[in-house]
Amino acid sequence: MIQLEHVSKVYSGVHKAVDDCSFTVEDGKITGFIGPNGAGKTTTLKMITGILEATEGKIFLDGDDIRKNPLEAKKKIGFVSDNPDNFLRLKGAEYLNFMADIYDVPSEGRREKIAAMAERFEMTDVMGDKILSYSHGMRQKMMVMGALIHDPSIWILDEPLTGLDPKASFELKEMMREHAQSGHAVLFSTHVLEVAEKLCDQVVIINRGRIVFQGTLDQLREGYPEGTGLEEIFLTVTEHA
């Protein structure tokens, strides 16, 4: 479970990128984090993962305060950033083993786990190649695999489906569902409302740094005439915020 309590982030002492955000990502659910460009999604995700320090407020990951107990909190997270162009000179297998070492994954069963993930994402044949030689989608798959190597209880994914082919996209969505069904929390940001509609149990909408809605999609539709599209509702919510 992820809990944010009155979290704010101010850049350079003047620009408030996130303003008094409070929301909860519950266990057993997939939560979509939606908002227009520059709304504060990535800043919020970076604060949750400990990459940025919140100017105000508290963030708890399965009860651990990210500021007071960062190492324990970080061990619980599997984070996929929006930029898959990392560690390009490492081979796929080297990268995954590096991530496994960093997250202290036991050697027992490690190779089997990597092989299973590679099989699922159809990456088995390129594990010995450098990530530099991968396409954008393959790099994205590699980052997802690296983030999940230590079986984290909390998944945080920033635009994870960008660049993935239909098969990989389907597999990742399946994995997210499985993870949520096993009682864990999944938080992912997206611009694609159709994905959010099909995948999410609840959504959090952020606009200009403030949370403007949190709840289920049915709750979001309440108050709008039947048949109104999610896109229209989203535009109304963010425009009137």
Binding site: K46, T49, G50, I51, L52, P70, L71, E72, K74, K75, I77, F79, S81, N83, N86, I102, Y103
Partner: peptide, 12 residues
């Protein structure tokens, strides 16, 4: 930009 990786991992 990969500095964020250094901050995100559970390594002191």
């Amino acid at each position: 930009k990969n500095l964020s990786f250094m901050k995100a991992i559970p390594v002191p």
